[in-house]
Design a protein around this nucleic acid. Structure first.
Length: 497
RNA sequence: GCCGCGUUCGUCUAGGGGUCUAGGACGCCGCCCUUUCACGGCGGUAGCACGGGUUCGAAUCCCGUACGCGGUACCA
């Protein structure tokens, strides 16, 4: 590659950044960094009816959170701005006119109703997908059928019009896709795509081609849903006399039940769709990035874990797979667990404090919090679960988990209270895990019962749960007073049951 | 319907004519470790969509079929 690589992520601000969009952005970014090139963000806000005010900010925020750096974009323009298509209206207009002059496009005055009528008519006569094409355009109202002065008159009168691409009648359009190889389409399957809408805005097709050229984009890396419109783009490049960029169409992310991962589908299957959801649900960005990178790509060895930086080094488009990839939420969680465990306790403590609403957690001793976290973090998938699982470190159990409570048998009360008597004699500062364990061993030996007979009821009494970190260490951390109080409470509330 | 693109364990994938009795990861199951739940370690489960070719030899190449997905807008 001789030219300096420049790629772009070009979302339309119609809502929150979709997880599939994030992956497209990621692949673009990885490709750019791999080749020492630039990653450009371009906002494709040409559909005013679907525009969402907060979307651009969400896109940028999501990208930042993921660690994707924007080299040029609306908030940090380079020399090819503006980076919002709505601000480039005149540019598109100029190029659309150029196409009219060269005879590659024409004005069309048909109303929506007239278009509907045409389609309906064709459908009735057995054409399942009616097009505005080289045949039908001859019976429509456009600058190709109308006398020249009539066209002129309509334009001057300010009549609404669109500009359409004059797709050749019969031509095979070929292009090479980096991921898929040679792809070809016949022009007769294409319709005379609207390039400039009646509101003066360009359609995606025009804006995209013009901008990619003007912004010196070398590689277009986008979702597979664009593959079928690529021939139209190729036609446009040709009409302008421009060299098309390299094309790469990414496989789509699929829902576990099949079909592309749409909002509705994903949510009903418990998969968050927007990047924002992952942020709010406290996923680790490194985990999402690593997971997404591997959804449709692999470096070819047996490795699974890579930082963003490493991914930049490893990523190549020829290793992207062709088939759609099903989103596997469990694997994402696995990645999240991995990255979570790599975070030092101190840092994790800070994170927990940031997201916790709990007074006791907020006011907890720093070292105490970090120690609790070190015991808990092997057991959870996400940071926010830390607090829930470790709540007993900070406050007495409100209620007892009903499932392990079944282990509280008739003899439990006697065993637990015997153990309580044993530890009552311990000093506050001698209240440590080793001794606590010895005492317990003493009790079970004397009563000739198994460990679990006392362990489980004791665990329930102290933590309210049937699982969790090492009980003796937990009790040591909690301190004698707290442990005694909790046992008292359990004994009185569970004795008769 | 038409056009296009795809199809290796349940899922993500490695594989690019012989080294594949198909490798790894997630999941699931079992064992070990362990007071519990986890972590970790070890082991197991399961796949080349189908049918024809080409070839001494095909998961790998070609052609069909099936299935899936995408597109078919003055949406991107």
């Amino acid at each position: 590659m001789k030219e300096k690589v420049r790629v772009r992520f070009a979302p339309s601000p119609t809502g929150f950044l979709h997880i599939g969009g994030l992956r497209t952005a990621l692949y673009n970014y990885l490709f750019a960094r791999h080749h020492g090139g630039s990653f450009i963000l371009r906002i494709e806000d040409t559909d005013q009816t679907r525009y969402v005010e907060a979307a651009e900010e969400d896109i940028i925020h999501s990208l930042n959170w993921s660690g994707i750096e924007i080299d040029e974009g609306p908030q940090n323009p380079g020399e090819f701005g503006p980076y919002r298509q709505s601000e480039r209206k005149e540019i598109y207009h100029k190029y659309a006119l150029q196409l009219i002059e060269s005879g590659d496009a024409y004005y069309a005055f048909d109303t929506t109703e007239e278009l509907d009528q045409m389609r309906e008519r064709l459908q009735k006569s057995g054409n399942p997908s009616p097009k505005y094409d080289s045949v039908t355009r001859q019976s429509m109202k456009n600058s190709l059928t109308l006398p020249q002065d009539e066209t002129q008159r309509r334009l001057e009168a300010g009549e609404e019009y669109v500009i359409r691409l004059k797709v050749p009648r019969r031509e095979v359009i070929r292009f090479e896709d980096i991921i898929r190889g040679n792809v070809s389409f016949e022009s007769k399957g294409l319709d005379d795509q609207v390039l400039l809408k009646s509101d003066g805005m360009p359609t995606y097709h025009l804006a995209n081609v013009v901008d990619d050229h003007l912004m010196k984009i070398t590689h277009v890396i986008r979702g597979e849903e664009w593959l079928s419109s690529t021939p139209k783009h190729i036609l446009l490049y040709k009409a302008f006399g421009w060299e098309p960029p390299h094309m790469a169409h990414l496989p789509l992310i699929m829902s576990p039940s099949g079909g592309k991962l749409s909002k509705r589908k994903a949510e009903s299957e418990g998969i968050p769709v927007n990047t924002k959801d992952y942020i709010e649900q406290h996923y680790e960005p490194e985990a999402l990035v690593n997971f997404l990178a591997y959804l449709g790509w692999s470096p070819g060895d047996d490795s699974e874990i890579h930082s963003l930086e490493e991914l930049c080094k490893l990523f190549t488009l020829d290793r992207v797979s062709k088939g759609g990839a099903v989103f596997n939420h469990k694997k994402l969680l696995w990645y999240n667990e991995h990255y979570l465990r790599e975070i030092p306790d101190q840092q994790l403590a800070k994170k927990v404090r940031e997201i916790s609403q709990n007074e006791a957690v907020q006011s907890a001793d720093e070292a105490y919090l970090a120690r609790a976290i070190s015991l808990l973090k092997e057991r959870v998938s996400k940071v926010d679960e830390l607090e829930k699982m470790g709540s007993f470190f900070f406050e007495d159990p409100e209620e007892y988990d009903p499932k392990p409570l079944k282990k509280w048998k008739k003899d439990s009360t006697a065993l637990v209270s015997e153990y309580q008597k044993e530890i009552e004699s311990m000093d506050d500062d001698g209240f440590e895990a080793g001794t606590l364990k010895q005492k317990l061993e003493g009790v079970i030996e004397r009563n000739e019962v198994g460990f679990g007979k006392l362990m489980m009821p004791l665990r329930i009494a102290v933590t309210g749960q049937g699982f969790g970190p090492d009980l003796f260490i937990s009790m040591e951390m909690l301190g004698k007073e707290t442990v005694m109080r909790r046992i008292d409470r359990a004994l009185s509330s569970l004795a008769q049951e």
